[in-house]
Structure formats: structure tokens, C-alpha cells
């Protein structure tokens, strides 16, 4: 089982092979297309984060000391980035999530997607991932 840090490092390694933005986006788009990330019953109003640009859903569970996150988005690029976030954060302990940083997003050149001006719901998703984890550390 990889640690949160190790997963971030392997994502950075994977992205290093892309020579231009097109390849990078093709990969993110494929991630966005391939994964069913959330069960329909969890796509509720309670779990929705409405962005100006796109909507996202996040559902959190706590099992055997690990956080299990399910999420979805209506825009495919947003969904692809959510898939990366889930790969990093899901199945990790709350403590590790709370103590982590998000620098890998910067390292793979996708920082702009986590800018508040994008209003795509991703900033709120990251915040909720942490809040759900903080709640389980108490």
C-alpha cells in the first residue's frame, strides 16, 4: 500500500513523460471518461458543490481507519483531475490527509485548475476532503 506521498510522486513521474499539454490533457480526459467515481445514490444535493463553471459531487466514508472518497463532476477535465485527487486521498488515514499538501498539482502543471477564479468546484472539493478528514481525527 503506497503512502499518500508516494502516490503523489508516482503521479509526478507519470506526468513527466508528456512532452506537451495535448498529451497531458488527453490523459486527464481519459481519466475523466473511464471512471465511474460515485454511486447514483450519493449524487445528492447534500454532496453537490456548485461552481460557476461546473458542478462536482463528493461523498466521504470512513472504513477501517481509512477515508474512502467518492466524487464526480459534470465537466470531463474537472472529472479527470478529481480522479487524480481520489487516487491520492482515498484509502488514506485522516491524519495523513490532514498533514498532506497539494504540491503535486503544481508539479504536474495543473495548478490553474485549482485556482479560485476557475470556479469549477475543485477548490471546494479539496477543502471538503480535508474537512471530512479533520472530522475523523477528533
Amino acid at each position: 500500500m503506497q503512502t499518500l506521498k508516494e502516490i503523489q510522486e508516482s503521479i509526478i513521474e507519470e506526468f513527466a513523460i508528456f512532452s506537451d499539454w495535448t498529451e497531458k490533457y488527453e490523459y486527464i480526459i481519459d481519466l475523466g471518461k473511464s471512471l465511474p467515481l460515485i454511486e447514483p445514490q450519493h449524487k445528492t444535493d447534500e454532496n453537490i458543490v456548485k461552481g460557476c463553471q461546473s458542478n462536482v459531487w463528493l461523498h466521504a466514508d470512513f472504513q477501517d481507519g481509512k477515508m474512502i472518497y467518492k466524487a464526480d463532476g459534470d465537466a470531463i477535465i474537472t472529472k479527470g483531475i478529481i480522479a487524480l485527487l481520489l487516487r491520492v486521498y482515498s484509502n488514506q488515514s485522516p491524519k495523513e490527509i490532514v498533514n498532506s499538501d497539494l504540491s503535486f498539482i503544481d508539479s504536474i502543471g495543473l495548478k490553474e485548475h485549482l485556482s479560485p477564479t476557475r470556479a469549477n468546484g475543485l477548490v471546494a472539493i479539496v477543502k471538503r476532503i480535508r474537512i471530512e478528514a479533520i472530522a475523523r481525527t477528533k
Partner: peptide
Amino acid sequence: IHPYDLGNILDKLGIAVRTGH
């Protein structure tokens, strides 16, 4: 195609459009 996705790719191509409501 979601408008946000299209706007993102166009931005990568240097084309500024507006997306959203």
C-alpha cells in the same frame, strides 16, 4: 461537450472565450 471543457482547451490554444452561465 461541457462548456467548461471546451473553454479550457481553447485557453490552451490562446483563445479567450467565456464559459458558464
